[in-house]
Amino acid sequence: MTGRKFQRGKASIEFSEGPRIIGRASVAGKKEGEGPLAEYFDVIEWDPMVGCDNWEAAESALQKKAADLAIEKAGLVRNEVRYLFAGDLLGQLIATSFGTVDLEIPVFGLYGACSTIGEALCLGAMTVEAGYADYVMSMASSHFASAEKQFRFPLEYGNQRPLSTTWTITGCGSFIVGKQGGNVRICGITPGKIVDMGLKDSMNMGACMAPAACDTICRNLEDFGRKPEDYDKIITGDLGEVGQKILLDFMRSHGYEIEDRHMDCGIEIFDKESQDTHSGGSGCGCSAIVLAAYILPKLESGEWNRVLFLPTGALLSSTSFNEGQSVPGIAHGVVLERC
């Protein structure tokens, strides 16, 4: 029954010490490297193929790079990392399988659509806190071209994108979670449930995911007995401009005003006017590289003290879409605190 003391409310966990994020790496693609956050990324990969033969292998190469860099920055070697929690957007997680095979670290392959890094951090933190590992790695990647190919059209096919669409980012974010070191800890988590409002528009994923983000934020506030003001920032993954608007409205219907502290990684990563990305960035890599490159440094420096990080995912496949299914959303909450 000792475990009960960590449980908060209906779905959250509050860690007593809180595992630390002791290494972080962000590898970004060309378009991201031309965007507003360019100066923060560890590595900008200018070659979309990353020296490989195809898009899928390129995404795997991003993962390998990010993984090795995070291990190096944490001052570890590969075999000190006990488990790896990683995922991507491709069918059967091929980017992860082929990208991490050389690491020789026992791996849990995760799929949470674009919320994968949230899922990976939740599970990583639980594993470390429980003492099942000294160090684990959480990682997620996406690649614009491999995602377009799988979910939409071949790259060279000409079409006009609606203004509500988001642009899948090319990049990989990787994190080492450990018991000691660093000054940012994961003090709590609120894994999210799937929320389906019946919307079927895969070109408006922000609207599909916003209700899930609202659900997880409200759950988090309720479980921890907090108010939005207890967080310096509430940061969603890839709602984009349309999703942000809807999330703020949803939060208002629950009596919360979070406009002053809400931030969306997808909105931050691109300049929509000059980069023609419409609603914002998306993809597993989006929240992962923004967390590694932008959010964690702000916590480390003390500019922010506590944030709720909330990667969002739209759970669809081209098959489910063609068969007329709706696009359910999910959001996993991770509370990050400076210590």
Partner: peptide
Amino acid sequence: PLPSENMQPEEYEKYVKKVTPVH
């Protein structure tokens, strides 16, 4: 009107349509 979880799919779709910009 503000959206809520209890909205019917059609209602939510209508709301989304209203807040989504178009070309």
